[in-house]
Design a protein around this nucleic acid. Structure first.
Lengths: 157, 157
DNA sequence: TATTGTTATACTCTATAACTATA
DNA sequence: TATAGTTATAGAGTATAACAATA
């Protein structure tokens, strides 16, 4: 037998395929609305408030600053964001979402979360609520608090 | 203000960075034990029972069959698995874990889950148990049940 | 003819480095 | 000199296609 005993599977091993499937579920929604995944991520970030620099926006969404440039070009051409030079620092570009961008984000998110809610019906109501609470907490943890021990990787010296 | 109202963030948007951090946390553990991520995944799969073909193993772990070949070579050279021709079908290779491979997997998993458990202390005990129950259920859902609506993507015709 | 394992190739995504302009 | 944005390049990871052995 291949009994695993009382142990559980690794959290990452269980969640990784699940998240991949959730992302796959977003693809047709995004395609139907004519927006890319990064475009949707950027739009979601700017819907929470404008950004003073592209680098700050990139950092906020965990992306490289060079990677969002083409995304911003597309969103700007589509009229979903405005990118205007900062009068106070002409190197920087002030980024903000437009009403059209807000509508696009809201509509797209509504479809995405409708599917997520459908998936979550696999859980009993109490566990569903607790799961959502837990995800909110865990997603708020800093990366380094998850990836490194409490004292950090170079605490042995 | 950028008030999000009573809505929640997307599940995928919250879980993706969290899973990335969990995976990042595994990296130094795997490196210290001298095994790759894919090697650990394969070892974990074979620790649950032998595989009759490499293709079946690849499918079981959600990988391409061409991608695990180098991984199997490494694991075999390290003495963690045995890969022997199937006498009944000389095209196929029977895959199984060795005692050394089992020890490696157990030790590595112990370290990985110790860190995961440390992270989970961010949750109250009841939510932590509910979260683990929920993850078990959700990770058991078929990919297509998550990625597609209940009727499938081509049910409109 | 179909399937297993393998190798070789091409493609996608991402990070790094180099450049321009402002400060 | 340092920083914001941009572009060009290189690298890792992955999937697709073609091949040899066996069924």
């Amino acid at each position: 037998m291949a009994d695993q005993g009382g142990g559980r599977r690794d959290l990452a091993a269980m969640l990784h395929p699940f998240v991949r499937a959730l992302v796959a579920a977003e693809m047709p929604v995004l395609a139907r609305n004519g927006i890319s995944m990064w475009g949707y991520i950027v739009l979601s970030a700017l819907d929470g408030g404008p950004a003073r620099t592209q680098a700050a926006l990139a950092q906020a969404i965990g992306a490289d600053k060079t990677r969002i440039i083409a995304v911003l070009d597309e969103l700007q051409d589509a009229g979903f964001i405005v990118r205007e030079p900062d009068p106070a620092d002409r190197r920087a570009r002030l980024l903000s979402i437009t009403p059209a961008g807000h509508r696009m984000r809201t509509a797209t998110q509504s479809e995405i979360q409708a599917n997520e809610n459908r998936v979550l019906t696999a859980l009993p109501a109490a566990d569903r609520r607790a799961f959502l609470r837990a995800v909110e907490v865990l997603s708020g943890l800093p990366h380094d608090e998850i990836a490194a021990g409490p004292a950090g990787p170079d605490a042995a010296g």
